[in-house]
Design a protein around this nucleic acid. Structure first.
Lengths: 365, 365
DNA sequence: GATGAGAATGTAATCGATTACATTCGGCAA
DNA sequence: TTGCCGAATGTAATCGATTACATTCTCATC
């Protein structure tokens, strides 16, 4: 009574089954699949027919064991739900999967336990290479990713003092460019909405902000540097802290270390009845898709997100295939300021409180 | 002159190295790691010390081959950059990685070649189970995912006529609820911004829309069903097509099959000088984070995104561990309508053109 | 016809773990 | 003393592929 499935094997066929069916040795089967040109037409046909009939697929674990490769890359990402990383991942996926690699996504989510588990995975030979989007070399209590002697490439966040390839943009320069844009519009009281202090991107973008002020002779004001952590919510809080200031004490422009915070801040200002950019110009950073969806559309530094991922992936493939270890090159991809609707010259308040401006405050030019 | 790294082995240590160093057999090493209680204290200490000294980690490929498991789950997702899926993925990752599984993300991106490659991976035993977020059973030109005889669970999009577990929400019922909300507010000319016709979610949400109209005696109007494809851009285009209508012919409310389209549509209406919800009430679907960030905040059906992922993952773990095949249960998680700022009663236009309403047009109640 | 080159295929070692089964050993009861 | 039992450990088979090396065979050449 048991309905027997027709030709299908109970368990998946192995190479020996195919060999038996085709009347050849396992070596010939393996060769037929790996280098068809070395086996003569007639044999090849018999083998391929047997492969089809059995539904044979070479077992990945067995092959991995033998050839000491897995064709898998581990990608460490701080937060998979962050749209910026999601877009970088697309670029990585395009390049890597075209080259036949699969990717394991290590969503670190700030959890040291997760991080440790993934380090162990890699040390145990589960991946042929690792792509770090996370700003540090992963570690577990007992070991470090470098112990795995596996090709490593970092992207997006530069990791200083390491001798593996890295792919980023010029964070300092583009941040400076963003602030210069505000200065050119005539702003002099420019706030900075920062990321977590320990983050290298934060440090670089802050540096760019300070450089822009310095080179135009605007004194930095510590009270205009607002704490943040790259989340929408941090933007909301920063907005509230601006609203708590006397209107005359408020900055006329703000540079946010990323788009999500900028969007949160704008929303909070709107809720309080202020207009962007009329009451406050805002520049973001990253160029996530929503920066162009929100209202007003966000002036921001657009990072080439897919390209960053693709370039890093290409670099890693190079490393994995040629084994040419430790070319510590640091690729920088171009990123540009896109002017949209969230910035404009400051309102002309003749008796304004531009007390920080050294020279006569420039107006729109 | 070559700086010799101290104790570190040149190549990663294998179990035989540990055994030699500890003066025991490989079996004892393996047992010490797998079932410490069966080996006496003194031996165990020696072995653990040797493990530490060598930095030994069991090779994953070898173990996988022997025990016929990989502790890897493949997650098929239509588009990794879609924020809805990103949040579902978080739930999946939480549950799966806590249980010791790694996940390979198959970003299908509408590419049959990619899909085929992943099917082959699974058939080749690269994964212990598969989570389908993609609304269909994956296939390659020659085979079907079912050929792999691997545990399967579908989430988010129901796949009809399959006997594996599925975890979704009640799409028909919640879509109906969304439209009922508009009707309760007094709307009778309610448009529907649809997804791709072939998509099961689209079919279910359309059905909910039609049910709500039917049960309240409002005739459906094919001209109020706008084509879409779940993207922001489709929302923009739908907005433009609404703007092309004579103002009096426009609907007073719109139900979008997902949030991204709703947001695109709202943006387009704003650009044309219309107010949401004053000139048009809008309800979305999904409850992505940005639905609460945009302006006005979006009334929408909030899906329990993390929970969907977590529940599906739990279901899959059950299947993978107990091997209890084919429990075709269909879990439905609750989803609720969240009323925010994008909906309100229709403007009172005494001589309005509610020519489609059967009974006397209800007004806000 | 003998010889050798080269092509096609086969045999068996190998990758590194897990684990069934075998062995050793100590202690206790008869 | 012998024999047996159970605990601790060792030996070797096994997972399923790849591939170095061995073998066989064909054919051209002398």
């Amino acid at each position: 009574m048991t309905k027997r499935t027709r030709v299908t094997r109970q368990k998946t066929a192995k190479i020996a089954d195919v060999a038996r069916l085709a009347g050849v040795s396992v070596a010939t089967v393996s060769r037929t699949l790996a280098r068809p040109e070395v086996v003569i037409e007639e044999t090849r046909m018999r083998v391929l027919a047997a492969v089809r009939d059995t539904g044979y697929m070479p077992n990945v674990s067995a092959r991995n064991l033998r050839v000491r490769k897995t064709m898998i890359v581990l990608v460490a990402v701080p937060d998979i739900a962050n749209p910026f990383f999601a877009e970088v991942l697309q670029g990585i996926d395009d390049t890597l999967s075209a080259a036949g690699y699969g990717l394991i996504i290590a969503n670190l989510a700030g959890s040291p336990e997760k991080e440790a588990r993934y380090v162990d995975l890699v040390c145990a030979g589960q991946a042929d290479g690792v792509l770090l989007l996370c700003g540090h070399v992963m570690r577990s209590p007992t070991r470090d990713l470098r112990d795995a002697r596996v090709p490593l490439v970092a992207a997006c966040e530069h990791i200083p003092h390491e001798n593996f390839p890295q792919v980023t943009i010029d964070n300092v320069g583009t941040a400076r460019e963003a602030v210069e844009h505000l200065i050119e519009l005539g702003h002099t009281r420019i706030a900075y909405l920062s990321g977590p202090k320990s983050n290298i991107l934060e440090q670089q973008r802050l540096e760019g902000y300070l450089q822009a002020l310095r080179e135009t002779g605007i004194a930095a004001d510590a009270r205009l540097i607002l704490p943040g952590d790259f989340t929408f919510h941090a933007g909301v809080e920063a907005g509230q802290s601006l609203l708590a200031l006397k209107p005359t004490a408020r900055p006329t422009a703000l540079f946010a270390a990323n788009d999500e915070m900028a969007i949160g801040l704008i929303k909070t200002m709107h809720a309080a009845g202020l207009q962007i950019p009329n009451d406050l110009s805002v520049v973001g950073f990253d160029g996530i898709a929503y920066a162009d969806y929100c209202e007003p559309t966000l002036t921001t530094i657009v990072q080439p997100r897919r390209e960053l991922g693709a370039a890093a992936a290409a670099e890693l493939i190079e490393l994995m295939t040629t084994g040419k270890a430790g070319s510590p090159k640091h690729v920088k991809l171009p990123a540009r300021l896109i002017r949209r609707d969230s910035t404009r010259p400051p309102p002309k308040r003749p008796g304004g409180i531009h007390r920080l401006a050294r020279g006569p405050a420039k107006t729109a030019q």
